[in-house]
């Protein structure tokens, strides 16, 4: 890695082994402060494990994960600290708090002090309420704001979760298969939300669906057997013989 300066996230030489199986093998990856990146790869390529490592869920056996201008090492920090540092994560399955309203879900995510005692004494300010309403309209849920999120459709839940991520005001968004199970119209709106978000922050999208990736129109990283196989535009990587072998061959 030569271009150390100006990178938001810098993953270098990371490996992790589960019971003898190398899920991530000497992986290096970096992303700038306002960039969209798609990560593709076959099943078992290590996409989810990669996200687990960045968000602190899994601790790698070796390697560095450096973050921000001050190059803070994220390894060893817990999930909450990393999230507070500015990394948001969206799971594959929509995970929102279904017995709480859209408003409560978003309010919980709005950037504020996270300690138990400050939360205990917290009353929503005018500004926070405005922020929640603004987010709700951004993700197209302004009408549903007082409904329980369990009553939303699958796509709406996905958007709510993305909205919650945006409410956190992260500098890096990790999004795991956002388009899974969506209708075509929903996909288009999801793309819009993500592209809009990528203007002000880094967004990493893990996706299987090539069409969706093409629509994102961004740099693509191909993972295979826990390390980077190819990197570049979608057309560039799909022309790569190794990538074709991995996807079609075997």
């Amino acid at each position: 890695m030569t271009e150390l300066k100006g990178q938001l996230l810098e993953v270098s030489g990371v490996s992790v082994t589960f019971d003898g199986f190398r899920a991530i093998n000497n992986l290096s990856f970096s992303i700038g402060p306002a960039e969209m990146r798609a990560i593709i790869g076959p099943n078992g390529a290590g996409k989810t494990t990669f996200m687990d490592i960045v968000t602190g869920k899994t601790r790698p056996d070796e390697g560095h994960v450096l973050w921000g201008e001050k190059s803070i090492n994220l390894i060893g920090m817990n999930e909450a600290r990393i999230a507070q540092a500015g990394i948001g994560r969206k799971f594959q399955r929509p995970t929102v708090f279904e017995d709480q309203s859209v408003y409560d879900n978003l309010l919980m995510a709005v950037k504020n002090a996270r300690g138990p005692f400050s939360v205990l004494l917290y009353r929503p300010s005018f500004k926070d309420r405005g922020r929640v309403e603004q987010l709700a309209s951004e993700i197209g849920l302004a009408e549903e704001i007082h409904r329980k999120s369990g009553e939303l459709s699958h796509g709406q839940k996905q958007w709510l979760e993305i909205g919650m991520l945006l409410a956190q005001e992260p500098r890096l968004l990790l999004v795991d298969e956002p388009a899974a199970g969506m209708t075509l119209a929903e996909r288009e709106q999801t793309t819009d939300i993500l592209v809009e978000a990528a203007k002000t922050r880094a967004v990493v999208v893990v996706e299987h669906d090539m069409e969706f990736v093409r629509r994102l129109n961004c740099k693509v990283t191909v993972l295979h057997e826990g390390s980077v196989l190819a990197e570049g535009s979608l057309d560039h990587v799909t022309a790569n013989q190794q990538v074709i072998d991995v996807y079609l061959g075997r």
Binding site: A83, T95, Q100, A109
Partner: peptide
């Protein structure tokens, strides 16, 4: 009743999500 309650119920329903929202579960 308040946001604290929201977080606590969130922990009950999905601990990991709360954690990735930046709350120290």
């Amino acid at each position: 009743s308040g946001k604290f309650g929201s977080v606590v119920r969130g922990i009950r329903d999905n601990e990991a999500r709360v954690r990735f929202l930046g709350y120290s579960v």
